[in-house]
Design a protein around this nucleic acid. Structure first.
Lengths: 332, 332
DNA sequence: GCAACCAGTTCCCAAGGGGGT
DNA sequence: CACCCCCTTGGGAACTGGTTG
């Protein structure tokens, strides 16, 4: 038994040999190389033969030769991401793929004991939902990654004006104000990793409240595992606060639950609104009003931003009006 | 201005040139190549110079030359994964990294409009939490991926006996039975993607119930968006069922919520236990008893399995006793 | 340490056919 | 009618950065 099948992978050279043409030509056809014209007949033969042999380009070889991996790395924050971020990522994948890129997602863990994925993947673009830390930026640069979004060059305060930050708090506050609540409090998780985004949202909430003629807004950090929500509702009750804007549904549930346990009715004595529209909001009793973001739109936007950063395609990065919807339920 | 800095990445050749030695030697040192002895002095110089120049191996080039990407692709199911799967993945990353592999996670979307990531990444191993569909297997084979876990060769029924499937339902049923509930029902989501795992868990629950001398177990599919939980609790109440084992915390919350809205007390008239110990379980009022799996352990196990599949390392794939804990709260 | 290799990509050039002068 | 030029088509070979006999 000498002629053992090596079962090697099919290469472009195999396709070329089988057709009696050159590797280069195979490459030209399969890549639609601009500046090279190939007769329609040859083109057809190449495509057919490649399919027949089951040819798959070797991605590592491609990456080496062209000097780019065609990978976009989406870095997700370590903290509980907005629910249904999944769809949003699916949509981003779809758009990127049409442009020849692959989207890989990666959750950055605070502990940082593992080597970040950008070192192992050599992505063309690293894109995050929040500005990166100096440490991460240094690590990326050391790995030769030049395209980073959000761009560390620009003012890091920029993203704070993005609709994904702004739209929610605006809706939350104006909803409560519209219902007649004149004394409103803001509640967020007691998590330092979230500090920046909490501050940004709080600022928007304050701003909106001021525009609607409300007075100062109490601001609390809640730990869902201890008694902080209990003391918060007791003090609010004492101080005449009747509406609470929560950073997310989890905090909203903690507040509403603490109120119920203290005999404060929801929404009668205290109205609560969450953010993200997670299953928790729908299932809690009473069900929680919340904010639902247009995640498909967000996904498309991420993809466009990445394409733009990678090669200037993707059109003008026009911020499409990100739609956030108020989902009204029993808690307000 | 002729000597413009090209700002090219630092290659092993640069390190070699700068030291007046050959590229090969640099490779030997940096890879600790066995069967090649390098003097300690040279070794030190190479390492120092590589660090000084900021040398990073080009992963695509490595992958091409050695014929393997050192990437393990963990495919996550499309359905809501157990909460805090994150930790579990972090632990798996850590273990794999020590062995020189990178872990990339990937959520496989049902719609399947996007090209699966294994085609773009050429991972050495693809590992899933559930057996793969024939279609996915075919696509992997076409991409040249030979190492797949769970091994499609073996009986696909195998994983159903794994502790991650078995431990939860056992604890749930025995807990309720231990509290004196003699008529128990099982509630799961109405989601066809989950059918296999639901059936597996249900079988375990039935088995456990029988062993504890309980009679038949009603089995329901719940859609959290409609009235199915309402009709379920009404019928259970009528039929004298006093305990419910839920597939996850979300279903448990839907059941408990429906009961409350119908004036059925929890746990007084109906006890409910969830699974996964998500924030929902802690925050719901009344708080929900649940099952917490040892996710770090699960992560380590995944990593070991992958290493074993990749190169036979990782030790015997001894199933470490996966610990599942009962978290008792107000709902039981 | 030299040199062959991994599997593509791409620059540059050669051959050949067609049309214009 | 002969000649020349240009454009289309496709090939040769260097190159990407490491690994290994």
């Amino acid at each position: 038994m000498t002629g053992e099948a090596k079962n090697r992978r099919v290469t472009a050279a195999d396709v070329a040999r089988s057709l009696g043409i050159s590797r280069a030509t195979v490459g030209f056809v399969l890549n639609n190389t601009r500046g090279q014209t190939i007769s329609e007949a040859t083109r057809k033969r190449v495509i057919a033969e490649a399919a027949r042999l089951g040819y798959r380009p070797h991605t590592a070889a491609q990456a080496l030769a062209r000097g780019s991996s065609r990978i976009v790395l989406l870095v997700l924050p370590d903290w509980p991401v907005e629910h249904s971020l999944g769809r949003h990522i699916a949509e981003a994948s779809r758009v990127l793929e049409e442009a020849g890129y692959s989207l890989v997602t990666y959750t950055l863990h605070e502990t940082g004991v593992t080597r970040p994925l950008w070192e192992a993947l050599d992505p063309d673009v690293v894109i995050g939902m929040l500005p990166f830390s100096e440490k991460d930026l240094a690590s990326m640069r050391a790995s030769g990654i030049t395209t980073i979004v959000p761009d560390p060059q620009t003012e890091p305060a920029e993203w704070q004006k993005g609709p994904s930050v702004v739209a929610g708090p605006e809706l939350q506050v104006s909803h409560l104000a519209g219902l007649g609540h004149s004394r409103i409090a803001f509640a967020a998780p007691d998590d330092s990793r979230l500090a920046r985004i909490i501050d940004a949202r709080l600022a928007v909430a304050r701003d909106t409240a001021a525009r609607m003629g409300l007075t100062g807004m109490d601001d609390r950090r809640i730990n869902v595992h201890d008694a902080s929500s209990r003391s918060a509702v007791l003090e609010w009750s004492r101080d005449g606060i009747t509406g609470v804007v929560a950073y997310n549904d989890e905090i909203a549930a903690a507040i509403a639950g603490a109120a119920l346990r203290e005999g404060i009715s929801v929404p009668g004595q205290l109205a609560v609104i969450g953010h993200d529209d997670t299953p928790l909001a729908e299932l809690f009793v009473p069900s929680l009003s919340s904010i639902r973001l247009d995640i498909e739109g967000l996904g498309r936007q991420i993809a466009m931003t990445a394409l733009n950063a990678a090669d200037g395609r993707g059109g003008a990065a026009e911020d499409p009006p990100l739609v956030a919807d108020l989902i009204r339920r029993e808690s307000t």
